[in-house]
Design a protein around this nucleic acid. Structure first.
Lengths: 140, 140
DNA sequence: ATATTACACTTGCAAAACGCAAGCGAATAT
DNA sequence: ATATTCGCTTGCGTTTTGCAAGTGTAATAT
């Protein structure tokens, strides 16, 4: 596990955690798509490799962004869940969406999401965080 | 230059552009530190390698985030500048700062920046973008 | 009870990206 | 004329990635 930070700059420290091509996609799946198992992440259209996925899940867990839980309906399944720290990345994810919306083509499915966001950004984020935290399951 | 996108998801497309350990640091330097030459970027405390820097500058230019200008005081120097698309990453950078502020130690120098942000985020971003766009120089 | 499948990884290996040091050409300074 | 600054480029060893195949445990089917 990479533990040395390059500097004490907040941007740099953040990038040390999730500054790669995959981490935020896992967080996206957990945050918006309600996909929360290893198998779910593999099914996402970007097609992450199994070893990279395992590595990133470890990384995100080590950095307190996600936690592992035993799946309620089966001991064979693992349920990944955003921590509060992970949930608090929602504003960031929203800003990425807004930026992408301004400068590239957004797939139809996300258009309504963006419509909601633009209606009242602050309210959207506040209620989104509240929703996610409500679902947060504490480890036994 | 990498041109194939992994999916049409806005998060994924954004990461295809600046989803690495260095790009946002270059953007940070242009946005907050007013460092805008190749040499300036090299001096940043994270110590980016020369070839990686050259590659990222190319990448960011190819994606319309930055432009190259001849430096007003010397033909030997190159002045890099954020485009409007690059400037519009300011809200994102602010959110990263706020997240990092909540979950890690922020160096004293950035504390006043964050104080300003927290006072009135929307106003801070709006005036920040305005400032940056005012300085924007059009290529001859 | 046994076999098969589902699930979450691990492993091996080739290819690509990275990091470091050195070099190079044009522009400026001396 | 010579040296230095500046913005890269090149070579090369190391690390990370991507792909395919395999492994172990738990659930399910027979």
């Amino acid at each position: 596990m990479d533990t040395k930070r390059r500097s004490d700059c907040p941007i740099s420290c953040s990038l040390d955690i999730w500054g790669d091509k995959w981490s935020l996609l896992i967080i996206r799946d957990l945050m918006f798509a309600m996909q929360c198992t290893y198998g779910d992440f593999l099914k996402s259209e970007e097609k992450i490799a199994t070893n990279i996925l395992a590595n990133r899940l470890q990384m995100l867990e080590a950095n307190g962004i996600i936690t592992k839980l035993t799946h309620p309906e089966s001991k064979a399944k693992v349920l990944y869940q955003l921590t509060e720290k992970g949930i608090d990345l929602l504003p960031l994810m929203v800003e990425i969406h807004l930026w992408a919306d301004k400068y590239s083509v957004i797939p139809p499915g996300r258009k309504e999401f963006l419509k909601e966001v633009k209606k009242d950004k602050e309210a959207f984020i506040k209620s989104g965080i509240k929703e996610l935290k409500k679902k947060l399951v504490k480890e036994a």
